[in-house]
Design a protein around this nucleic acid. Structure first.
Lengths: 242, 242
DNA sequence: AACTTTAAGTGTTGATTTAACACGCATTTT
DNA sequence: AAAATGCGTGTTAAATCAACACTTAAAGTT
């Protein structure tokens, strides 16, 4: 019996079979980050395994033999959340022997960044919730370890690549952007220097619109010019530092 | 039949079986870098598959269901080269559906750095050779893609972490270190600034010894103090730049 | 309408870091 | 002894970064 998309089969059956035959199972797990109320969130689902009664886990599934890794991650994202067209990148694979109680399953972890406002969960599911990353203490499987790895990856990545914007609405205030960086990096940044830094990149464009419903002077709204970024000279060798 | 260490079984048989049953095979592939004659080298083996007549491939093997990913990579390294106690790190997983002609095999790529002088291949094998990275054009499977990914990873990594030293003898001259960086990054660096940079890190220690057999004034030999590095404050947040 | 509150917007300065650059010295070779 | 090679060292100008304060626009309060 082929190990087709597990969500449509009985996953336990497949895993038992794998285990009996001495094969390794392969899955993807998606760490889906969102940003809401100035906090970094992650989308988790209640584990369906008895072993992990009540614990939360990442969204994942076994990989079908006819799909790529990226394809599987994308499918999980879409099947479980209805979300489409989102930032998705492979981070790391995890293969501790006993990481899954039912069988030996190697998993490839992906990091995804979504705009919580825009992408309402299209498949509302009581077992599916956004959790504040910094409050999470325990998870099913080795998912806490995976989450930590993806969070660290994000902290580094966000400083070197323009991916933070995927967590924000298309139009955002500079303060909103700074809040994002402060929340993810866990530091306070100087407002003026932050502005200077971003404006000097010359990749933010004034939309002509302003914040509304704020109890103070409204800030300008900007959007990020990905096209311009794509065309920029990227090389910047020699920054040895450790 | 369990998918035990493939090197001891007939790998084709296992793969045929996997393919028939619709399972995914999982392997590790090691990109083993060395540095010799001021060039970055990679250790390759002649592919044993007819499909890739004469092409070179990375050192890899199927993962046993009783070993971790790191464990499998380490085993491959040791089995095929006799090398031990080397730098080894996971880089990325590759899962294109047709990347292996015999079956669907997902592979986890590892990057390893070894000192070519010190680690003479203990299992001399005519089919195993060091190749100059920049001259490699074609490889078996998708191994060129994997090599490229690991090379790029190394270029970035070497600037942020002290791993270059794994490619050098325990004692090395500053010129040797600079040659390493220049070869890997593919740039020319200013000798005086390079010195200043490394000495200011305060992690290189004078061994009191000097180069020998050079047709000019011999340079001092240093070694890298890993322990001191390990204890150093590592935090250095906020370097937004892209 | 006047006043208070809040955060937006804006520049300067000193300190640090980086890039560019030249000469004397130790060793081997001829 | 002279030539060749590449080691070892310091300065300066330019760029970047970190720290820091006041004016302004809008909403809320009296």
């Amino acid at each position: 019996m082929p190990a087709t998309a597990a969500s449509q089969k009985n996953i336990s059956t497949i895993l038992r079979q794998l285990e009996n035959e001495g094969y390794n199972g392969i899955s993807v797990d998606c760490v889906i980050f969102g940003f809401d109320e100035d906090e970094l969130k992650v989308l988790l689902i209640k584990s369906d395994l008895q072993d992990f009664d009540g614990k939360w886990s990442l969204l994942g599934d076994l990989i079908d033999s006819k799909e790529t890794l990226d394809g599987a991650a994308y499918r999980v994202l879409k099947e479980r959340t209805g979300m489409d067209d989102v930032y998705l990148e492979q981070v790391k694979s995890f293969g501790e022997i006993d990481r899954h109680p039912a069988a030996r399953v190697i998993t490839v972890a992906y990091c995804s960044l979504v705009n919580v406002q825009q992408h309402q969960l299209k498949k509302p599911d009581n077992e599916l919730h956004w959790h504040t990353v910094k409050h999470i203490e325990e998870m099913a499987f080795d998912h806490k370890k995976i989450l930590d790895a993806c969070y660290q990856w994000l902290q580094k990545r966000i400083q070197e690549h323009p991916l933070g914007f995927s967590l924000l609405p298309k139009q955002f205030s500079l303060r909103g952007l700074q809040n994002l960086y402060e929340a993810i990096l866990g530091v306070k940044l100087d407002r003026r220097n932050f502005r200077k830094k971003f404006f000097s990149m010359d990749l933010l464009e004034d939309t002509g619109e302003y914040e509304t419903d704020v109890p103070h002077r409204p800030g300008k709204l900007y959007h990020f010019n990905y096209e311009k970024y794509r065309l920029k000279e990227r090389k910047k060798w020699f920054g040895i530092d450790f």
